[in-house]
Design a protein around this nucleic acid. Structure first.
Length: 268
DNA sequence: CTCTATGTTTAATT
DNA sequence: GAATTAAACATAGA
């Protein structure tokens, strides 16, 4: 469940479930997800400490505890946090469980992740993956100027740059695909061929999609215009949507109404 | 059986 | 050495 809007929803859930609670027990034996991998380290760092705050940058969650301890959580491709009764059975694909107590009320949260691309990192200082993250569109805001400053001087395509977490934090394949369609820009365009108007269009499209996804995800389903719809007609112009591969990730786009920047004008 | 998948890291290649 | 590309991870679903 991962891209900025999904992670933001997870943050709000965890904040609601955990803030002010004391961690009564912490259990995980998953050596793929856990860092450090020793279950005893996970337990001893977390147990007995209260949850101060749950924050997010990009796709990373940071659960801040007493004494400077923090639990970083990345959801990978299929990770999610769920709240359950203390005596509820183990979830399918459950990888970690925290038992909580708040005002004498007991509860539990579980980390589920079928593919186990996610991470749970219990540490006493911020990890480098967190420190090097780029601008977060939701937390820091994003406009034409800040986007242009972030992507300036890159040689890769705009699609790949948008997904670089150290450039912009939280943009994944879906949002990048959708935003470039919304901005009418061909995903193969190079960043240094983009005008200030282009940067403005992309920044606005990103903010629109992120806001809409958070709003919709909080309740129902989400709706994508082009992602996963290759071969179907473009919702804007009706041409058949194409699928290409960039940096091993599929990109769906409309070759008719998304303009490829930096290409020589078509000869007549 | 084959292909694809919301993400990131690491190895291989240019 | 920098940059780009492919592979790897682990599992599910079409």
């Amino acid at each position: 469940m991962p891209e900025l809007p999904d992670v933001e929803i997870a943050r709000r859930n965890l904040q609601r479930w955990m803030r002010g609670a004391v961690i009564v027990s912490a259990h995980s034996t998953d050596r793929r997800v856990l860092r450090p991998t020793a279950p005893s380290t996970f337990r001893s760092l977390l147990v007995g400490r209260a949850v101060r705050e749950v924050s997010r940058r990009g796709k990373w969650l940071r659960i801040e505890l007493d004494d400077g301890v923090r639990l970083f959580s990345h959801l990978g491709m299929t990770g999610d946090w769920v709240a359950r009764d203390v005596d509820a059975a183990r979830e399918p694909s459950e990888r970690a469980r925290l038992m909580l107590s708040r005002r004498d009320v007991a509860s539990s949260v579980r980390y589920v992740d079928p593919r186990r691309f996610g991470r749970l990192i219990a540490v006493r200082k911020d990890i480098s993956e967190w420190r090097t993250l780029g601008r977060d569109p939701l937390a820091d805001g994003l406009d034409a100027r800040s986007l242009a400053a972030a992507i300036v001087g890159r040689r890769r395509s705009i699609k790949e740059v948008l997904m670089d977490q150290n450039v912009l934090a939280g943009i994944g394949n879906i949002i990048a695909t959708e935003a470039l369609w919304g901005a009418r820009i061909d995903p193969r365009s190079k960043t240094n061929d983009l005008s200030p108007d282009d940067a403005n269009a992309i920044a606005r499209a990103l903010m629109t999609i992120i806001g809409r996804e958070i709003r919709h995800k909080a309740e129902g389903a989400s709706r994508f215009r082009v992602y996963g719809r290759a071969g179907l007609p473009c919702p804007r112009c009706g041409a058949k949507l194409l699928r290409i591969v960039q940096a091993t990730r599929g990109t769906t786009f409309c070759a008719r109404c998304q303009v490829r920047k930096g290409q020589r004008a078509k000869v007549s």
